[in-house]
Write a protein that binds this DNA or RNA. Structure first.
Lengths: 119, 119
DNA sequence: ATGATACTTAGCGATATGGCTAAACATGAT
DNA sequence: ATCATGTTTAGCCATATCGCTAAGTATCAT
């Protein structure tokens, strides 16, 4: 079980950080250098470098060095696996939606009566 | 900058783990108890418990205790924020690609006449 | 060749994550 | 009451993550 899908792992992991999502959004406007990406974050360069290499490791961005400047750009097709995972899940979830709906409703009702566990 | 969106943070973070994704996929088939969810993972109960509370914290599942058994179910609308983030990004990324396309086209045309810009 | 610029690497500290065991509850069955 | 069952809590260990500073490398400008 637990088919390890390192691709999805890395994608989700990379996107779990707000700084990294902000970088992606910034890069959607066009390529930028490391410093340009760092400035609006308020973080130090090495820290941003780390974020960038996580993004690059996940395949979300590509970068190349020109002289002493590295410029980074989005890899547009990188979100595809994520999108198809989402689509797959939605398909599965919706297949059971009717039953789940009833069930959740029942859960909520139960929760209103019995005080759940002491949490 | 970096508007922290804890909602997305938690969602992406929760989905970054293969065990947790497997649990979700399992739950798409219908509700299950903690033990039932634990069995196929090969992990110990407390470990699975932790995964479940991460999923519940992210709003991806709901659970309620009936007697000594806790059953868990998917929360179907939970993926919505993720889906809309993805859609937003895709829109931005595609807009960028269009502009890039135009830009390249423009470069080509200019090049036919005079020497292009310095880079 | 000197210095400024733009990254890059190395390494530290605090906290988070993901696994475990052992022990505690809580409920259902006898 | 006792015991089995199903979950939960507490706490440990190893590793990963995210921030930093300090020092290194490479390139460009003078």
């Amino acid at each position: 079980m637990a088919k390890h899908d390192p691709d999805l792992d890395q994608l989700f992991q990379a996107l779990a950080d707000p700084t990294r999502r902000a970088v992606l959004t910034r890069l959607a406007e066009g390529p930028a250098t490391v410093s340009e990406l760092a400035r609006p974050t308020g973080l130090r360069l090495p820290t941003v470098m780390r974020h960038l290499s996580v993004l690059e490791g996940a395949g979300l961005i590509a970068s190349a060095k020109d002289g002493r400047v590295r410029s980074c750009a989005i890899v547009p097709e990188a979100l595809a696996p994520l999108r198809s995972w989402l689509d797959d899940q939605r398909a599965l979830w919706e297949a059971r939606l009717d039953r789940l709906d009833d069930y959740v409703t029942k859960l909520m009702k139960e929760r209103e009566h019995g005080p759940g566990p002491k949490n």
